[in-house]
Design a protein around this nucleic acid. Structure first.
Lengths: 150, 150
DNA sequence: TTGAAATGGTTTCCTAGTCAACAACATTTG
DNA sequence: CAAATGTTGTTGACTAGGAAACCATTTCAA
């Protein structure tokens, strides 16, 4: 690709292009339920381990503690999450889903399923498997662990 | 993936995870040259067609005209871009690269090349080609045209 | 056992976008 | 040709996040 490569000469370009489209459409879908993508990830994380300190959420979501603090505020205001004091350490507290928050998760999960089908359903089974395999290998190779949010 | 799918059950999840890692690393590389990713895309677009109205840039970059207006301000302030009035239509103007801006493009392009090698070099040739092919097919199928920036 | 360092969270300031209102100019239409 | 409508670009209000300063508390070490 001499001498000055084009934008679209790079795999990263196409990756980002497709990824953005998929994510933006998903964002649109969850927005209909008054939730952002970051909020979805947050809620989904809490769904499994019903109680988590914000620091762990920050770790698993790959966001700063400051961002989690504000995100938690917003979810609190929406009544989807609640804070409870931690008896042992008076600096710390825990976050958990409210009933309403818990009820929303399956709905949002099905939107995620739908979105994936919508975008990747056009691939043949072989293609889809190859894509998954390659992406997971890349993620593994790079030691990625945090759930992507942005 | 019944009853409530996990985050990582979706191809979109892995796509975003890898895409974010690649882009963030590229952002770090260009930041060493005092440029953001959006600025790089902007400069690279101008490099080919040396003169463009902001409206066309907005179109090709998939950003609002407001965003382009501010982006142009920043590049102007950095001395990488210049505005010139359009004789025919007094509302409009054109953007073009300064000498300095033009000089930066090849440097930034080589960073993009480097970044791609760094992330996708671990793939076999077959894998890399399959990935490119699938991504381009998806982009095509979805009618995507704007250069991804965010 | 008390002063220093570490830790959990929050807050402030900054950045880079969107969206919607706007000003200036151009174009169309009656 | 005047008025309505459309178009170009800018601006202001707002959003979500990062970085770093900060506060309160806990832990560690002399």
């Amino acid at each position: 690709m001499p001498p000055v490569s084009s934008l679209n000469d790079h795999t990263g370009y196409w990756l980002r292009m497709v990824s953005n489209a998929v994510s933006q459409e998903f964002a649109r879908k969850v927005a209909n339920h008054d939730v952002t993508v970051a909020e979805w990830v947050f809620l989904r994380a809490l769904y499994d381990r019903n109680v988590m300190p914000p620091s762990v959420l920050a770790e698993t979501m790959g966001m700063t503690r400051g961002a989690i603090s504000k995100l938690a505020d917003r979810l609190l205001a929406k009544g989807l999450v609640e804070r409870t004091a931690n008896g042992e350490d008076r600096r710390a507290h825990s976050l958990s889903l409210t009933e309403e928050g818990r009820g929303k998760v399956p709905v949002l999960a099905s939107l995620a399923d739908q979105n994936d089908v919508e975008y990747f359903g056009v691939l043949t089974t072989e293609e889809h498997e190859a894509l998954n395999r390659i992406l997971k290998a890349l993620a593994e190779r790079q030691g990625l662990k945090a759930a992507p949010v942005d």
